[in-house]
Amino acid sequence: MDFGLVITNAITLACIYGTLAIGLSITWSSLGLVNMAYGFIFALSGYGAWLASLYISSSAPVIFAAGILTGALGGIVVCLCAFIPIHDKPSFPIRGLTAALAISLAGNELLMWIFGPRAKSLPQLFGFWKVNIFGVVVTSDKAGTVVSALFLLTLVLLWMRSSRRGLEIRAMMMNPHAASIVGIGVRSTSIYVMIMTGGLAGLAAVVLAQTYWISPFSGITPMIKGLSIALVGGLGSVPGAVAGALLLGVNEALTAALLGGQYVLITQFLLIILILILRPRGIAGILDRAREA
């Protein structure tokens, strides 16, 4: 067994799924919305990037920008349809979830109707090269994935920590009522949040398209994995999501190497159920003490 391969695979997967999980986590904790349309945003931005590579240019920055922009656009659409009309209505969490599912249903089929069921692929963005770090062979797509995901995530997290908008989003996460009292508009802030998380989905889509294809339903499995990670990490906690991503990435790579690919989901869900039964609020329950009360 090649441990180097296992570790690089684990880190790559952790980065992609972690991006999705953090996007979902931020949406949940600041807006109270489980964004089930994330898979649709994912697929949409994949198609956006594909169109850009077809009609504009197939250079990496253009494709990345196109993917992220389409993702942000999808985020705005979801925000306008599933959040703004009902966010102050009764039983919003379940209704928001259902509305996002409806968008996912309609959107995926719309993509199917426009682009057809045939899968599309993006050009290789990171070139073809290999590096040897301490005897571990790292291929270009893995390195590129890790670097770009980490770069964007760090950017987002730094922005959340230090800027005024970031403080706005975090304040809204903690107490939406108090947020409106200090002058934070819930609806305008929700648009920023959705643009940001949609952009993250777009990045993940472009990066994952290096290994998977772009198809109308390609977003569903990554979304479910991202959700699982967010769950394991504890919905709403960014460090929890990172820890969960690492844990599940390691699990996926190890299972694939030791037992075989078809057992990945089984071990993954057993792991999730185990963690959730031990810690009903996910890993974040251990990491973050200030969230009590």
């Binding site: 975090r170 304040a171 903690m174 107490n175 009522h177 108090a178 009292i181 002058g183 973050d288």
Partner: peptide
Amino acid sequence: QGPGRYTHLVVRRGLALIPQGDEIFHGL
């Protein structure tokens, strides 16, 4: 309808409400 829907606009006009019960952000 929509309690709180326009509060932030009123606040931007120059109102500071210090509400009963603290309404604080626990994690900040």
